[in-house]
């Protein structure tokens, strides 16, 4: 089936099998590998992307369902690795708070946090924790992630 979608601002058109999962389209066809697959059953959240501005688990969305839509992956949050000034505030806060270890859940966590803050720029701790309840991290124990998201939210609110 022919589909077209905007991925990180760029139009992509192609022929896909109906059963192709959005996560596989992004990873295998578009080589956008920051979207990662950790559980296959829409629990872990490593595959989180924004579809038309809302966070979704791309392992549980068919590529054909995204036809005509706009997909934003963790790559769109990336800055120049060598220049922290270009990083997304969430990325800077994750590093400052040591909110990542192995990094595998991190891109999903960043997209989930960005989606959360888009809807609630000033979440309290409880809102941050529940806002991230679709994302599993096995390394950090979560506390530092919560601190990082709260810190980034403050920075983003005070940004001009």
């Amino acid at each position: 089936m022919k589909i077209s979608l905007i991925v990180n601002g760029t139009l992509w058109q192609g022929d896909v099998e109906p059963r192709l999962l959005l996560a596989h389209l992004l990873r295998e066809r578009l080589r956008l590998t920051a979207t990662r697959i950790g559980c296959d059953t829409s629990f872990c959240g490593a595959c989180t992307v924004l579809l038309d501005g809302r966070t979704v688990k791309s392992c549980t969305v068919l590529a054909v369902q995204a036809d005509g839509g706009s997909v934003t992956t963790a790559e769109s949050l990336a800055g120049d690795p060598d220049d922290p000034a270009t990083w997304h505030p969430l990325a800077r806060a994750f590093r400052a708070h040591h909110a990542l270890q192995c990094g595998f859940c991190t891109s999903g966590m960043l997209v989930a946090a960005a989606g959360l803050l888009a809807g609630d720029p000033d979440p309290d701790e409880d809102a941050v924790r529940h806002g991230l309840e679709g994302n599993i991290c096995r390394c950090t124990g979560y506390g530092r992630i919560v601190d990082a998201v709260t810190g980034a939210a403050a920075e983003m609110r005070s940004a001009p």
């Binding site: 990873r27 590093r95 990542l100 891109s107």
Partner: peptide
């Protein structure tokens, strides 16, 4: 003291490469 981790620069900016990301 703590120094910001070097690997975070790539892990936070789309530069990580896990085995499943490598497809010759």
């Amino acid at each position: 003291g703590h120094e910001p981790r070097r690997e975070d620069a790539r892990l936070l900016n789309g530069g990580a490469r896990y085995t499943g990301d490598i497809r010759p």
